[in-house]
Amino acid sequence: MADTSTSSPAVPGGIAAGERASRRARRGQSPWVRAWLILRRDRAAILAAIVLVIIVVASLLAPLYAAHVSRTDPFRSNLSGSITIDGQSVAIMQSSTQGLGLGVVPIGPTWRAQYLLGADAQGRDVAARLLYGGRNSLLIAGASTLICLVLAALVGTCAGFFGGATDMVLSRLLDVLWAFPVYLLAISLSIVLISQGITIGPVEIKSGSLLLPIGIIGIIYVPYIARPVRGRVLALRGSEFVLAARGLGIPRWRILRKDILPNVATTLIVYIPLMMALNIVTESALSFLSIGVQAPDASWGTIMQDGQTLLYTRPVVALAPGLAVVATVLALNVLGDGVRDALDPRTKLR
């Protein structure tokens, strides 16, 4: 929005490559090294990065956990099974002791290897599903962030660099997307695509595929990033070093590649953790409305949805994935703040 204001380039471009290298050698630091040195001193950001690594590793170890620790299949319902606690056999689905005594309640947290956090309404191990869910949530968040940034960079750079009719068309398109409440757009796309899948030419994406939420979440936030990118490119295009390069007769694509894109890259990198945070929340919201990740696959959002019916009897089913989301998103936001301070303090999300 207000990012179109004057801004100086982070990397002095337009100078002959040889001289640039020697300058860098004189100062001894490239902008990337400088950013890393700042980030390394940011204790909160480093702590957040460690938390994220732990969460990612734990999620990646999900199959090992399911095979060797919980020893259950987290994708198959287990309504009649039982486990042994302190030498006694306990049914996973217990008949309700509250109210009229009708219906069954899944086993609560056992705080043992099996059913550590209890079972969901299908009798599946919540702890194992939480780890598997983390894989999907993180995968969707990461992949959709990548899609979003690539598209936004493309749209924003084209609109800003070529200007004229290209800018006009792309900017109006972004305006329309911008005025559309993101959740409604995401829900509209999800409902149509997830029930029927999509066929584009030879590529057929099945309705339960993870590619659908990835693509949808990747598209809806494009205007959020494309606008600041466009503003940045516009400012760069009018900056002195680009004008100098044009005056020297350097071809446009070369200016784009050597002078504009490296400067846009910092803007984009700043957005990576913040977008991932936003995408995790979006994924969980879509899955919560049962139009994200489809059963029997798990994600943090789907587990929260499973937990909603058990909210008053077995709150841990909804509590645990929520805490996982909060921890991950919080860590990503803290890391994002650190990266922004290190690379480009001017950038703001929205």
């Binding site: 945070a277 919560f288 959002g301 929260m304 937990g307 909804a318 909060v326 936001n333």
Partner: peptide, 15 residues
């Protein structure tokens, strides 16, 4: 404030 930003609103509502 950051915790507020990081909570999915529906989950907070559930809680």
């Amino acid at each position: 404030a950051l915790i507020g930003v990081s909570m999915p609103v529906f989950w907070f509502g559930e809680m």
